[in-house]
Amino acid sequence: MVKTEIKRIDSQKLLKETNLSKKAALLQYLAQQCRIDVFDILHEKGTGHWGGAASAAELITTLYFHIMKVRPNEPEWAERDRFVLSKGHASTMLYTVLSNRGYFPQSELSTFRTLNSRLQGHPCMNKTPGVEMSTGALGHGLSVTLGMALSAQLLKKKFWSFVLLGDGCLNEGQTWEAIMAAAKFKPERLVLMIDYNKVQLDGNSDEIMPLDPLPEKLKAFNWTVAPKVYDGNMVSDIIQSWEWMQKQTDWPLAVIYKTHKGKGVSFMEDNHKWHGAPIDEDNYAKGRPELLKTLKDLEVQS
């Protein structure tokens, strides 16, 4: 199949946009652009995880281009905000967003999962600039991020510590240990973000391991939980959730985002089979036009 080139956004210009609704529209476009890049890489390599990466496109894009204070040319800047991708299998989305943000050249993305690459199958902090913690085994992210938030407290720093969990991490007992511990220590600016697509590897979370009523559970564990479930595939909604976070004083914070696994390709959405299956020629040819059409529609809006 001939790959149609896409119109790429000037991501550095986007960072300077001050009109919030304009910026939201640009970010929505950028997230879709990243989703297409991920789709292309996964097809090219024949290995990697599509479902969970597509699910988190808008969340990771909005974090790095709107919410977090970072310095891509100084990745170790001590005051930077931290982000941990606890669902490490979504690595391709993190890499694509980081390269767009300026941490490393976009040309490097196609080295994903090849020998000598800095882009490991799952994120590795000592290989990839911008990656704050190596993940892959599920269930570590919240504990580690709690450690970062506690560091901010001990070192009298003001950085935010964000962690993104999927349903799978919330199956792990360790996550609930961390939920209890975070409510005990209450470090400031610790935010648990949940990519709540309700689909895991083997099936829907309702059949694999039901998590509902999730907001009530988190509240019962003494967390401050956002008053609504936001649309995690909608940048304007994610921005709204950030507005809410900044007004809070009772820590830690949990925000649940309704998302769709495999978002953007209709026959892959909400289907566990596309958790980690390679994207073959046929499905690539069927899926890519859908992604391109959405990108085109977003262009009109922005």
């Binding site: 970062m148 901010a152 360790q174």
Partner: peptide, 22 residues
């Protein structure tokens, strides 16, 4: 930090602390 009877969580909290220079 006494983290309660949750050893796995304790080790990863320590990992997070170490990334920040503690």
């Amino acid at each position: 930090l006494n983290v309660g009877v949750a050893e796995a969580n304790m080790v990863d909290i320590a990992g997070g602390l170490a990334t920040c220079g503690l």
